[in-house]
Amino acid sequence: MKYLLTLLCIFALRAQALEPMTDTDLEQVSGQEGMQLTLRLRNNVDELLNPVGCSGPLNPCRMGLEFAGRDGIWLMLKDYYGYISFNSIRLDGSELPASYTSYEDADRFLGLDGSCLVAGCDPRSLKAVKVTYPFSKAVGEYDDMLLLMNIGRTALEFDDGPTPGYLRDAASGSVLGFRMSDSTSLNAPAKARFDGSAYVFGF
C-alpha cells in the first residue's frame, strides 16, 4: 500500500484559494492557540471514489485482523475500500464551567484506590480542549463528515505454510456484505453533521 501524504495549510477566511506557505510562515505556528483540521483518507478508490481493482478472487482490496490467541487465523474484510473526510474540525483551548450541572457525580473521578483523580473530584473550571465543527449548520447541511465504506465479503483465512492467511482467498463466500454510502448516486459518501461542542480533558 502506498500513501500519498500532502500537508496543506490554509487561512480560515481564504479557504477557497490554496496558497503555499513558506518555512518562515510555518515557524510562526505553535498550535497552542488552537487549530483547524481537515482530514481526508482514500483507501482503494480513485479521486472520484470509484474502487480500483476491488473485484474478483484474491483482489488486493483487503484488511486482515489477527487476534491474540488466534495465531495464523485472519479475519479478512475483502473487497474493502472507502473514503473518509472530516471537514474543518476546530480545536481550541477552553475552560470547563464554574458551576455544577444537576447531573454531577463526583464518584466518576475516583481512582482505583479511592483517591480523586482530579483535585477534590471537582472538574469545575478545569482546562480542556474544545472541539467544534463551526461550519455548515443550516437545515439540510451535512458536511462535517463524509464516509464511504464497502466490505464485500467477510470470512476467515488460515495461514498455509509460508503463505499468510491475509494473502489467501480460500473462503470465497460470505454471509453478508456491509456498505455505508448515500442513495443519491453510486459510491456517493454518507454525509453527517455534528452540532455543539466536545470538551476533552484528562486526568
Binding site: M1, K2, Y3, L4, L5, T6, L7, L8, C9, I10, F11, A12, L13, V29, S30, G31, E33, G34, M35, Q36, L37, T38, L39, R40, L41, R42, N43, N44, V45, D46, V52, G53, P60, C61, R62, M63, G64, L65, E66, F67, A68, W74, Y80, Y81, P164, Y166, L167
Partner: peptide, 24 residues
C-alpha cells in the same frame, strides 16, 4: 492484535491542515 491492509497503489491520504491565527 495485528492488522494488515492490502491494495495496489490506490490508497491515498490527504491532509489539509490549518494551523493558523484564524484571523477574525
Amino acid at each position: 492484535m495485528r492488522i494488515t491492509t492490502g491494495g495496489r497503489t490506490v490508497a491515498a491520504l490527504l491532509w489539509a491542515l490549518c494551523l493558523s491565527p484564524l484571523l477574525q
